[in-house]
Simulated assay, not measured.
Amino acid sequence: MSLNSEQEWAPPGVDPAQPSVARVHDALLGGMENFASDRSVARRLRDAVPEVVDLVWCNRAFIGRVVDFLIREAGIRQIIDLGAGLPTIENTHEVAQFADPMSRVVYVDIDPMVEPHARAILNGNAYAAAITADARDMAAVLGHPSLTRLIDLSQPTALLAVGLLHLFPDRDDPHGLVREYMAALPRGSYLAASNMLASVNPKAQALEAMLQATMGTGYFRDRASIAAYFDGLVLVEPGLVHFPEWHPDDRLPGPLAPYEELLLGAVARKP
């Protein structure tokens, strides 16, 4: 398919020549909701770090385990998924509603393609919605009619910021953004967050360089900086760890593959 033909069916507000994080992510997962520009970036990322597809699936598996914990063990019934990306499989609402069909989920993403495709996946699901908004604009997110219809912000709510915060440079103050969101949520709410880990790992350095070269984003941070997202909150065991080490359900914890060392994440409760 040529770029010109892609432009014919691109929804309003979408420039097919400009790659987006959500669509590149979709291309890495083998999805169909992407353009030639996105596939080009995906190929360059795979060339730089061949395990990047494994990394994306590792990210999705972590989200699934987190959501299952939030519903089954933490008693949460409301989830706001920031930077949700395009629907694939085992989405947040599917995992949550498998555990409890009354669980409510709102997906948030800046890419205008996400909302219509999510609506198609949701297919009239009364307890899930998708909105187009910039996660950095908390007022627009929390005040969106689709969110206020589903989410009672006076009740404990889980905020997912997994695979998102490393997209924001320090000048956007991602730590302050997390604090603002958690301040707006009541006691008993949860934060699940992650960031790419800065290290001497050559795969980390290659991936960070390629993300910034192709997408103009991708800010890896050290452990102390990632831990600071959870300041004032109570970490859920085992704390801030590499994704495969957080409540593993498919294999015994063991030596990490090099790509598995690239992400740190945790879940924490607002006391």
Rank of each mutant, 00 (worst) to 15 (best):
P174C: 05
L45Y: 02
P101R: 13
R77T: 13
H175T: 13
L70N: 09
F69A: 13
G163N: 07
D249V: 10
L164F: 04
L177Q: 09
M1D: 09
Q97C: 07
E94G: 05
L147D: 00
E180G: 14
P116R: 05
R221N: 00
L28A: 02
M102Q: 15
Y127G: 13
D170C: 06
R171V: 15
V53Y: 04
F35E: 00
I131M: 12
L167N: 06
A128R: 03
A224T: 14
H242R: 05
L167G: 02
G216W: 13
V105F: 03
N4S: 14
L235E: 06
Y127A: 11
R187W: 11
D68A: 14
R221C: 00
C58H: 12
L28M: 07
R187H: 14
M32S: 13
P255K: 12
L233I: 07
A183R: 15
Y181G: 02
P101A: 12
L207I: 10
T88H: 14
A140L: 07
E33R: 13
D222R: 12
D47V: 10
D250F: 10
Y229K: 10
L82E: 01
F98K: 12
T88C: 09
A42H: 02
V105L: 04
P271M: 06
V66E: 01
P271D: 13
Y107D: 01
N195Q: 09
V241N: 08
P112S: 05
E73W: 01
G188D: 07
V49N: 06
L262Y: 05
G254Y: 09
D111N: 06
F168I: 08
I79L: 08
P112W: 03
I80R: 03
R44A: 15
M215A: 04
Q155A: 14
R104F: 01
L240V: 03
E90S: 12
P116Q: 06
P202F: 11
S20V: 03
L240R: 01
A192I: 01
G83H: 08
A42L: 02
H93N: 06
V95G: 01
R136K: 14
H175R: 15
E261C: 10
D15H: 08
M182T: 05
D250Q: 10
D111H: 02
D231R: 11
A48Y: 05
A120R: 15
S199G: 06
L185S: 01
N91F: 00
D134C: 10
F69I: 08
A266F: 00
H93T: 02
N195K: 01
Y229D: 09
L153V: 08
A209D: 11
E180R: 15
G30P: 07
T214L: 08
L153D: 02
M102V: 12
F230Q: 08
E33H: 14
L207S: 05
P112C: 05
T148K: 09
P253I: 00
K270Y: 03
V162Q: 06
V106H: 02
S40M: 09
L159H: 05
Y127R: 13
Y229G: 08
A48T: 07
L142F: 09
R60G: 02
Q212I: 04
G75I: 12
P238G: 04
L160C: 07
L264N: 08
I89S: 14
